[in-house]
Design a protein around this nucleic acid. Structure first.
Lengths: 160, 160
DNA sequence: GCCTATTGATTAGCATCCTAACTATAGGGA
DNA sequence: TCCCTATAGTTAGGATGCTAATCAATAGGC
């Protein structure tokens, strides 16, 4: 999260540019807008998920498993017929393994994910989305898309 | 932070669009790019600050006080001659008061900020940047600007 | 058949953010 | 003066992220 509410004015950036000759004021201004706008959207999404007993991370774990090809039928992909290993989730999500462990544990407790041993490998577990988990996703997605559309419609939001 | 590495393909978004008629695939694609790119930049900045014994939040607290008009000379603004109250920092930064308390405490311990009671008000403290704090800022800013310029020069970074 | 390196997952310890509740000071009105 | 409210800051407790270290199972070399 990027916490600066009021981005520096053009004038302020220019004065930095004089003090630090290598600085590209245009790039910095763009980067700060990117950070601020992204953070505002993240805050809004996090609030949405919190209001529905989830979090951004838990939602993404659900989505990432759910969108895997072969979840309900055909069945292939790098790990077999649907579901993912914890390490595959970590690969797709850019979060650390321990966070995957904890998040999956919480979602299994909540009944939204299932966990089953992998026949050929005693170390691994295959994580799948339960029907309840699928229902939660189906419930949340319309509001998620609406929130995003709302946010993106407001071009200057967070630009100061 | 937004953790999804591989953003959904256009095709995947379209299939969601069919299942959820209200969805604006263009807006969603744009929002995910925004989140991903913003998160990558945040990760890079956080790593930079960590390598220099700071954090994004601490850096912003320093910057926000330092850029306040009247820091070194003229002296006006809503709270007098330079520095800010903790509550003013929280206002500018969109972080909660307790985080300001802890962050300022850490920076005072590190010698980068100073804290002085406000004459007229027994509750408040005025937080100022010490010379050491100013030196740290001056040290970090060139690398900070360079990192940002690098990142912004790579237009597609994080777009999958 | 063992020894070692690798891989999947977890545990432990730490940092940092939040909300809610609290203490202390300030200020305004009866 | 007394009280009620508002404001500045802190404390307490919980959630969530990270890295480093650990356990367990697999795979390869000899």
């Amino acid at each position: 999260m990027f916490f600066l509410k009021d981005l520096p004015t053009r004038q302020m950036l220019q004065s930095y540019g004089e003090r630090y000759p290598g600085m590209d004021a245009e790039a910095v201004a763009g980067a700060l807008r990117l950070l601020r706008r992204g953070s505002l959207l993240m805050r809004a999404l996090e609030a949405y998920f919190t209001a529905h007993a989830l979090s951004q991370t838990r939602f993404l774990v659900l989505i990432v498993i759910d969108r895997e090809p072969g979840q309900g039928g055909a069945g292939q992909g790098e790990s077999g017929q649907g579901g993912l290993l914890a390490s595959e989730i970590a690969d797709r999500l850019d979060i650390s393994r321990p966070v995957v462990t904890d998040t999956v544990k919480a979602l299994v407790r909540a009944g939204l994910l299932g966990s089953a041993p992998v026949p050929g490998d005693g170390r691994a577990k295959r994580i799948t989305v339960t029907p309840a988990g699928g229902a939660v996703l189906a419930d949340l997605l319309p509001g998620y898309f609406a929130l995003i559309a709302d946010f993106m419609a407001c071009e200057d939001e967070g630009a100061g």
